[in-house]
Design a protein around this nucleic acid. Structure first.
Lengths: 351, 351
DNA sequence: TTTAAAAATACAATCGATTGTATATATTAT
DNA sequence: ATAATATATACAATCGATTGTATTTTTAAA
């Protein structure tokens, strides 16, 4: 904000009228004569008036701002969710303040504090991997500030969640691998404090069970699902006496890292020796060769729906319970990585 | 902002002192006795006081907010730049409002208006492909609000630019392709109103010239560099009577789209028949097979430097001219896509 | 002990817009 | 023309924090 900003009072003085009339005119109040409105708007334009939303918000006790906390802005899923959130928010006259937790609890708490101080009218968040205490989120609920989770949620908190059906989707992925003749299916899981990961793990287990395969805990590798984790995980799995013939990873990043490791450092082939499936349909999943079978989870759509829902709550327009669970469609995308099983040994015998 | 928010006056009343003392205490003013500060801070905590930055900002005439306009939040380069911007901004006590122009002029103007109304203290932006008029950006300069461009800039505007040396880097890329024995090097260029693209085009031309290769305008395909443009571009190039043996694309997205098209729909091989190089080092560039030779341009670093520079300008701490050009290092990343030239015909003859 | 100087705190205006209430002006009915 | 009503505008308080100035309290000096 600089020196010479023109205010409604400057306009008022210029026209020899009162500031309140100017304010009402600019807001098209029926209380001021149409001709006066016109005159005032003209003067406003001439003087280069630009409203000061901070002042207006202070008075109206509304910030017209939504807070967003995501683990990483630059993850495709989150950046596209943010993109969707922005679309809706700006269309509805809300600004958006975005924070990233870097998957760390302390940062998430600091972010929550910042958003609070900025008097956000609502919060959209996907919780950090490290977060196991939720007081910093609870405070928003306590203060009557609506909160909507998307993707990763805190199970203890009474708030709306916009999610996909992780259990069911993981079941489908596993079922798909089983139907391809895979018998020893490994799983990369994420931190167990996040329900999305335990739900996926459970969907995976259930599918194994339903199809008469034994669940082997040794085939589950839990990590933060980063690139290094993917590499470490596949090394571990390949070191097992009874190697898996398929891997279902709870995200694409780790799956792709593992696939690259296999290509570059082992004699195994994908999907010949080991089938792969990921989760999230990141852009890289369609770029890698063979294409990675994964689950399409539109960040943009999830962001839009979560934002719409949040704004409805802010406005008190929703009749649904605050802890409603909104389930978004997700689709299994089958690519070559989960294709035909052609064990390497067979191949070698041929050649 | 909800009903029961506790203000400094609530604290004051609770302790039977004046609000101004509370305000000073919370800001650690030397004007209030250390013991009183302690007492006030304790009371503030007990009462659950959270500062209202809007009120403070109104009074101090500072919004502590930086505005960012990027074409697309979900593009990796931009999301990582935003990530870098956030890091710096929050560390320095600034909030960030992010807008996306979708590469459209009208949206960019609307974004500028929003940021203005929010009294941002500075702007960071990378301009939209469609933008050829700059009044909406000029107004910030006119009002004394610092503006810093990163990556895509408006040449007419007197403002700092944080960029890489597009000319020199494009020269290097082209040189690299030439050194691999390529003679007919095509180029995917972006909209010519953006200097980053004309600079790259010029760097490419200069390299051709320096190495005694003729510049053939037919080998330059100008587009918005989206996926479809990449496909269209490569179709066009392959339809030429004298096909190119290399392609230097001004971004990775179009390069990858073209590579995928070649793999899936033509008998040609990369890099055997045609070498590829992109620009930006997007994550997919390392995922695609063969790996895409490209230019590493750290969005995170550019974002950080641009944010630091902007904040210095806001604080009036910079001694550099406002139209300084900050050049960030960029590195050529050589991968397999620009490897050995082994024309398909030769290969066939061998087999 | 009195007084001057220093330290701590209180008072009051302010930032720019909004809004309930009061007043002035215009319109209609009698 | 006058009262009654409707319309248009002005007045003044307010949101929550900050800050220059005034006042009170404490400390030090005489």
């Amino acid at each position: 904000m600089k020196k010479g900003r023109v205010t409604i009072h400057d306009i008022a003085r210029h026209l020899n009228i009162d500031g309140s009339t100017v304010s009402r005119a600019l807001n098209n109040s029926p209380r001021v004569k149409p001709k006066t409105i016109e005159k005032i708007k003209k003067a406003a334009k001439e003087l280069g008036y630009k409203p000061n939303v901070m002042a207006a918000n202070l008075r109206t006790q509304s910030s017209k701002t939504i807070g967003v906390i995501v683990p990483w802005i630059s993850r495709y899923f989150f950046s596209s969710a943010i993109s969707g959130i922005e679309e809706i928010a700006y269309a509805e006259g809300y600004n958006v303040i975005i924070c990233q937790s870097h998957d760390e609890y302390d940062r998430e708490v600091a972010n929550a504090y910042t958003l609070f101080a900025n008097r956000v009218e609502g919060i959209l968040t996907s919780v950090a991997m490290d977060t196991v205490k939720y007081d910093h989120l609870e405070q928003f609920i306590d203060e009557g500030i609506p909160l909507v989770f998307f993707d990763r949620y805190a199970p203890d908190i009474q708030a709306c969640r916009v999610v996909i059906d992780d259990f069911q989707t993981a079941y489908q992925v596993t079922e798909h691998l089983i139907s391809g003749g895979r018998k020893r299916i490994a799983h990369f899981s994420g931190p167990s404090n996040l329900n999305i990961y335990t739900d996926r793990l459970n969907g995976y287990k259930k599918a194994l069970e339903d199809y008469g395969l034994v669940f082997d805990p040794n085939l589950v590798f839990e990590s933060r699902l980063l690139i290094d984790d993917g590499v470490e995980g596949i090394k571990y799995l390949l070191s097992l006496p009874d190697r898996p013939d398929a891997l279902f990873s709870s995200n694409d990043l780790a799956a792709i890292a593992a696939m690259k490791y296999i290509h570059q450092n082992t004699p195994f082939s994908v999907p010949g020796d080991i089938a792969f499936a990921g989760f999230s349909n990141s852009p890289s999943a369609s770029i890698i060769d063979p294409g990675l079978t994964t689950v399409d989870q539109s960040g943009e759509e999830i962001g839009k729906i979560a934002a719409k829902r949040l704004i409805a709550e802010i406005r008190g327009e929703t009749d649904k319970g605050v802890n409603e669970i909104v389930t978004i469609n997700s689709n299994l995308i089958v690519r070559e990585s989960s294709g035909e099983k052609v064990p390497r040994l067979v191949k070698q015998a041929k050649s």
